[in-house]
Amino acid sequence: MIWPIDLAILTLVVVAAIGALMVKDLLGASVLFGAYSFMMCLLWSIMGAVDVAFTEASVGAGVSTVFFVAAVFRTSRRTRD
């Protein structure tokens, strides 16, 4: 594990998480959540957990984002917080 890369991606993960919760649009929140999942996947490949990393890349970032976009498409993009 190379600690400067680890620290940089950890800060990006925290920024993406806060952004996904703060943005005032649900479609934007789901896209930022996809970015968060991809950062998480990078973090796991840095830690040497390659199997967890590619499962997260396909299932976490891919399928979850599709679920979120489908749910937002069937409901509304409006949010107050």
């Binding site: 996904a20 919760l21 649900l26 929140a29 789901s30 959540f33 979120f68 749910a71 937002v72 409901t75 949010t79 107050r80 917080d81």
Partner: peptide, 10 residues
């Protein structure tokens, strides 16, 4: 959070 989708993201 007040919105249900935001709760699910959390």
């Amino acid at each position: 959070k007040n919105n249900l989708v935001k709760k699910i993201v959390g």
